[in-house]
Each structure stands twice: as C-alpha cells, then as structure tokens.
Nucleic acid binder design. Structure first.
Length: 620
RNA sequence: GCGCUCGUAGCUCAGUGGAUAGAGCAUCUGGCUUCGAACCAGAGGGUCGGGGGUCCGAUUCCCUCCGAGCGCACCA
C-alpha cells in the first residue's frame, strides 16, 4: 500500500488531538492547583446557619429542615423573614404557635448576627445586628475583590459544555446566537462555582447538506465569488440548491449520493469539504472574537463518523438495535414512550443522532465529566430524549455522568421560525453592526466630546452588551420574538442601564480622589465601616446575596437570575445615589465607608455582567 | 392525531406552594445653580388564558378545555 502525505482529514484529526491534550492538561492543573473560596464563609450562608441553629435551639430539635431566607414585604418590620409552615407540618404544631415559640426562643438568646425576632402569623421576622452585618459584608467583598461570588460548591467537577455549534457553510444566524450566548454564560457561571470547563464548539460540519452543497458548487460554483466572500457564496449555493430541488427532486438523490461518497472519504470531495470548513471557521472567528468567546475544542460532527459506524455495529451485536429486513436501515425501536428512530440509513451513512452518540462516548472517555450540557434549541427536545434514553440503555451513559439538554426557546420573526433555506434568516454580523452603530449614535448624542477611539471601543461594549443582555435577561425556555426596534432600543431596561450605573460609580470614586486626595479606604479599619441610611443597608443586603445567586443560577442553568439580580442591585444603587452625596459627606470614616459600598457595588456589577458576557466601560 | 414547551399589567418580562403578585417600557405628576437626569420619587393600570380538583393556603402541583410555538425515523 502506498502511503501518501497526510490527507486533509488526517491533519484535522491531528489538530483535534492537540486541542484535546491541552484541555486535559488544563483540567489536571485546575485539579491540582486551583484555590477555592469556601461557600460556607459567605455572610449569606453564615446567617442562614445561625438562624437554623437558633431555630433548633428554640425548639430543642435536631433538624430544622431547609431554611429559606426571604425579605419581608415592605409593610412588615424586619431584615429577614422565615416561614414556618413546613416545619409546623413536620412537628404537627400550629404554625402561629410555632412561629411564636421560635421568636421567643431567638429573643431570649442573642446571636452574633441575630438581634431580635417577632412572630407575625406563621412568619418569624428577624432583625439582625445591621452594623455588624454591614461591616462584615463590605469587608469581605473588599478582601475577595474579583473572587467575590466564587465558591467551591462544585469543586473538582468537570463539565463539558456543547454550545454555539453553527453549521459550516452558513452564516451564523440569530438562532445560533442564543446557544452561543447562553452556553458562554453557563460556562462562566459553572466555572465560578468550582467546575472545570470544557467549552466545545460542536460544529455542524457533516451531513447530507454537504452533498447538497457539493452538488450546488459543482453545478453553479463561482471561484471568484467564493474567494471574495466565502460564506455568502456558500449560503447562496445552498439556497439555490433548495430552490432547484423543488422543481427537480432527483437532485436530492444525487446530493445524498455525494454525501455517501463523502462519508467514504472520497479524496476529491473531502478536499472540497475541508476547504468549505476552513473558510467558514475563518469567518466565524471574527464574530467569536467580538463576543469575547474562545472555545477549548472545535470538534465537529465530522470527527465522529468512523466511531459512529463502529458504534452502530457494536449495538447491532449486542442487540440494542436491529437491521430492518426490508429497507436495510438500522432501527432503534420505541423506548417506553419515546418514538423509534434510525441509527443508520439505507445507504449506510450516519445520522446526526448516531454521531451525537459517538460524541457522547468520546466525551465521557476523554474528559470523565460529571456533567455534559447540550445548549441546543427546543426544536431538538425529542432528539435529546432519544439520545439519552438510548445511551442509557446501551450503557454509554451511566450514573457517573449527568447529561442535560439545556433547551431554549426559538427566535421567531413574525411568529415564525427563520430559515436559511427560505432566506429569512437574520445574520448575526448584520445584527451586531446595527446595534453598534445605534450605540454610537446614542453615545455621541449624550456625549458629543467623546474621542473617536473611545467611541469605537465603548460603542462596541454597549452595542454587543445590548444584544447579549436582551437574550440573557429572560428565562431561556421561552420563545423570543425578534424585533429590530426593541433589540436596538438601548435606552430602556437593558445592559446600558447597568453599564451606566457602573460608570457613575467610577465617576464618583474618581471625583472623591480629586477632592480628598483618595477615597480613604486605606485609612479605614474594618470596625469603622458604618452606614447611616436604610438605602445603604439595603444595598449591602443585596450584595450579600451574590454568591447564592450565582450558585442558584448554576443549579438551575438560569443565567437570567443573575440579570434580574443585577437590575435590582442597580435600582437600589441609583436610589441610594439620589439620597446620599459622597462628596458632601463630612465625616471621613462615613465617607470612606460609602466609598467602600460604591466600590463593592461596582465590583459586583462588573463581575455579574462579566458572567453574562457583557463588558463594562470606565466611562461612556 | 400524538408528544414537549409557553400563556402573569396596554407592551416586554420576573416571581413558582405561603404575608397586600413585582420590574422595565408606555401614560400621568413631581425632582438638575448640588458626586453624570442614560437618573430618582410617586400615581394609575392585574378575574396570573377559561373551568374543575388537591391543600389550612394555588399564579405555582394535578386534570380538562382554549390559544401560541416546536417536534413526531432515512434533515441537522
């Protein structure tokens, strides 16, 4: 056998092997060296533990169940509230009487943080030593700085996050944008709670569509156009094929045949495919860079064709699936209520689900993940049910790994799905440039003296922030109706409000330095931190919750919880800003305390937005 | 036809067994000689799609109907 120089495909396999090796090293390093902030050290946790212990002592019981801390409604006195319904049920007592008992018990013995308690109906309203709590919260944030909010709740775990996954030879549309944005946010959030992350861009670089594309390229391909504007030309070819195939159904058969040849690694077709892939990746890199996204691996579906084939043979041997007598396709019969599906087509080629199965096997073998997240739209709900059910049945997926489909709603335009085939897709780059241009207009309008270089930089942060935030501020399961106007409406409750709040704080701190020669934190001892107004304490209370909010966002795969939290924080800050002037605060200790508060708010805003993938400018 | 998801203020959305269901936008009323008004304070606006059920208590859980979206093997 003659052994020529490595083929295009072999080179690609080498690239993958290198990136995989690098990630494995990263995971190993993190496992050995990463330092964690202990979740139990946070004030929000300490307070809960203290309350739980007070409840237990008051009642003389061992287990107080889960303590849920909430703020009492505005008309009720107290810093925190506790409802006793569940505990009452467990102890078979009347809720009102139990609440009274707990309140009396807490009253009788003052704790480190708890000062007093009052029963109102079935609620116990708790008053804390505000000045101590305030001091502890701020000093902790100032000490931990950008590490504030990190925790060890998932220390030592590995998560593979499969997101973005655009299709080669098509422009990235706003549909894949959701996966990209949500996936990136989840990667950040998971990492913050202790996970080691494998960010994998599972490119759609295989499938019958490439038969169609190659067919179209061979029929109508234009070298000049392809060199000038690769993605546009490839997209046009793809759309043209589908228009043509409507009139000439036989073209579809020919496309399928071309794909079958591709799967057999026909050198001529593989070379063409590799070229389309490389051109597409170059194009995607531009958008990813603007969004600040870097993947650990870009292992496309194409990588798994061989493994998929072997896997199907294996499953046939073991009887997990069967060959259909008539068609010759490989079938998996209905599993419980999940409809049956194919693992191999009549012509012997693989399917999306087959390759995904091989991918799953590969990921488990290679990274030993505790969790695998598939950030893919809800149109694929059934596929993931099928994938997971079969993977469990065939023992590719065991109890050591949890595979989750992070489903999300679709971006609909006029109540309908957008499609490349129909040409109704909105391209991500168009969206970004429109948003950035709109931001430029607004920035220039608000601040005509801004320098051109600053304008470019800031409008990029504001424009991209608007797009990203618009997506992440709402819970992911619901459909988003696409609306240019709303998306680019930067003045309303969007990232710009949070960015503006951050900028204002920066401005205050800068001014403090100018007027007083410093913000005074260096001269402030921990026990000198103090506050005067309720609005200051309310802010600290909100700051205290940040670590729990992150942990909750991770546990429920809900980035929007962070967005909602940050909006509440900014609202509280702007209210405080209106009430209190730092520059006019005469007492240097109080002034420094307020500077500490502002700095903490700024820090949490920046970190929180950072988790969502939104950057903050220093001024705007 | 079957399956999954969604339905909360005029609009966009939070809340999900517990105290009087909350934000933003829009509307109206106030607040810049005062740290950036891209802001703040306040007002109006709700049969939480309809109807049943479970529960001391349901917007939240169950059933049913209505409406919307998405799927239902040789696409991804």
């Amino acid at each position: 056998m003659n052994k020529p120089s490595p083929t295009a495909f072999e080179k690609y396999e080498l690239e993958v092997a290198e990136s995989v090796e690098a990630v494995q090293q990263k995971i190993k390093r993190e496992r050995e060296n990463r330092a964690y902030v202990s979740f139990g050290d946070y004030q929000c946790v300490k307070l809960r533990v203290e309350i739980a212990s007070a409840v237990k002592k008051s009642l003389g019981i061992r287990d107080a169940g889960d303590i849920r801390l909430v703020s009492p409604p505005p008309h009720v006195f107290g810093d925190f509230a506790l409802d006793v319904f569940n505990l009452a049920k467990k102890l078979k007592e009347k809720p009102e009487a139990l609440a009274q008992k707990i309140a009396d018990g807490i009253k009788a013995r003052e704790g480190d943080l708890i000062k007093d308690a009052f029963a109102v109906g079935a609620f116990v309203n708790i008053e804390t030593h505000k000045e101590i709590l305030y001091r502890d919260i701020l000093s902790q944030i100032l000490e931990l700085k950008e590490h504030y909010g990190e925790s060890d709740v998932n220390a030592g775990r590995v998560a593979v996050i499969d997101y973005s996954a655009p299709n080669i030879a098509k422009p990235i549309g706003v549909g894949h944008l959701r996966s990209t944005i949500i996936g990136q946010a989840l990667a950040n959030i998971y990492h913050k709670t202790g996970y080691s992350i494998v960010k994998d861009n599972h490119l759609g670089d295989w499938g019958t569509q490439f038969g169609a594309l190659i067919y179209a390229y061979q029929e109508w391909g234009d070298e000049k156009k392809l060199a000038e504007n690769p993605i546009t030309e490839l997209k046009d070819l793809y759309v043209r094929f589908h228009q043509f195939a409507k009139e000439h159904p036989e073209a579809k058969d020919q496309a399928r045949e071309l794909f079958a040849r591709l799967e057999k690694r026909d050198p001529e077709l593989i070379a063409l495919w590799k070229r389309f892939r490389d051109l597409s990746l170059q194009d995607f890199a531009r958008v990813y860079q603007r969004l600040g996204i870097e993947f650990d691996t870009c292992i496309g579906e194409s990588y798994f064709t061989k493994q998929a084939d072997q896997l199907v043979d294996e499953c046939l041997d073991k009887g997990f699936c069967r060959k259909d007598e008539i068609s010759g396709a490989v079938v998996v019969d209905q599993i419980e209520k999940i409809p049956s599906f194919l693992l191999r087509k009549q012509d012997g080629t693989s399917l999306y689900l087959t390759r995904d199965l091989a991918t799953l096997q590969f990921r488990i073998k290679t990274f030993h993940p505790h969790t695998i997240l598939y950030v893919v739209g809800n149109e694929q709900d059934l596929n993931f049910h099928q994938l997971f059910a079969f993977a469990k049945r065939a023992w590719y997926l065991s109890g050591n790994t949890e595979a989750k489909h992070i489903s999300f709603g679709m971006v609909l335009r006029d109540g309908k799905k957008m499609s490349t085939r129909e040409g109704t897709l909105i391209e991500l780059e168009d969206l970004i440039s429109q948003s950035v241009n709109k931001s430029k207009e607004i920035l220039l309008h608000k601040n005509p003296d801004i320098l051109p270089r600053e304008l470019d930089e800031i409008s990029e942060m504001v424009g991209l922030g608007a797009i990203v935030y618009n997506d992440l501020r709402q819970s992911r399961v619901k459909n988003i109706s696409f609306d240019w106007k709303r998306m680019l409406d930067l003045e309303s409750g969007s990232a710009i409000y949070l960015q503006y709040s951050y900028v204002r704080i920066n401005s205050i701190l800068k001014k403090l330095k100018e007027v007083y020669g410093g913000i005074g934190l260096d001269k402030l001892e921990k026990d000198e931190i103090a506050f005067e107004y309720q609005s200051e304490f309310a802010l600290a209370k909100q700051l205290m919750l940040f670590p729990e909010i992150i942990a909750g966002a991770q546990a429920t795969d809900s980035p929007h919880r962070i967005a909602v939290y940050l909006e509440e924080l900014a609202l509280l800050f702007n209210s405080f800003y209106d009430e209190v002037s730092l520059l006019k605060t005469e007492n240097p200790k109080l002034r420094a305390s307020r500077a500490a508060l502002c700095q903490s708010v700024a820090l949490v805003l920046k970190e929180g937005l950072g988790l969502l993938g939104v950057k903050v400018p220093k001024k705007m």
